[in-house]
Design a protein around this nucleic acid. Structure first.
Lengths: 116, 116
DNA sequence: TGACAAAATAACTATGTAGTTATATAGTGT
DNA sequence: ACACTATATAACTACATAGTTATTTTGTCA
């Protein structure tokens, strides 16, 4: 019987997909963006994102569960911070790809509009 | 009235999130993985992934719509290929982060089991 | 034209999840 | 103990989407 390298692959894909999934929501991206400048309390994040407290708490729980943020308690405040800075590399790379595509769209548009 | 830099930000977050979302599904990752070694027909991808033809066609449409793959017609075959190779950089980076975390888990486990 | 194969699409089901509202928990200061 | 604030959790709604089955479209070849 062959070793199930296919199944191992499936598990790996699952793990990777789950990570990307954490980054595939605009509100979670806003939270991570808010934390880019340093740790923040839940209330601060609520204000920065314009969302509601329960919603932010839930997203923070997901991000924490996925290992992307860290939580620290002080008095009755919860301070959250980035635990996996590499996510910003990912975001930058994606932004770059988007910018490149917009650029070439623009270029094509110009070419189309050139008088020969 | 202030320029709505907040709203622009929201749009950017949407764009980035949508890109990550394409990568947040195991089956789509398997498809992209299958295309890593070169362009493939739909039927070939179906066989490599073990999924069904309609499911693969739908995922391919999503990936194409998101600019990640390209489609080429020849006779009555549809050849798909990678249009945005940078996605492999992203996947590699994520895999790396997972590996690092598994490593440190392993290390912690060893430390716990050390006799003093 | 008719039979066949490849791929796309439609309709449907089932599941996941973002956001809301209401409530519970926990820490602080009086 | 009480009031107050910060955060977490529960229950719910609404919507998106992965996968399935059935059907349609399109090209090839006889």
């Amino acid at each position: 019987m062959l070793p199930t390298s296919i199944e191992l692959n499936d598990e790996a894909m699952e793990l990777v997909a789950r990570r990307f999934k954490l980054l595939s929501d605009p509100m979670r991206l806003k939270i991570l963006h808010a934390l880019h400048s340093g740790e923040k309390t839940v209330t601060e994040i609520v204000e920065l994102t314009g969302s509601t407290q329960p919603n932010i708490s839930k997203h923070l729980a997901a991000l924490r569960n996925g290992g992307l943020v860290r939580r620290r308690s002080e008095s009755n405040l919860a301070y959250f911070s980035i635990a996996a800075p590499f996510i910003f590399e990912l975001c930058d790379r994606v932004c770059q790809s988007i910018a490149t595509e917009l650029d070439s769209l623009q270029k094509n548009f110009s070419l189309q509009n050139q008088t020969k």
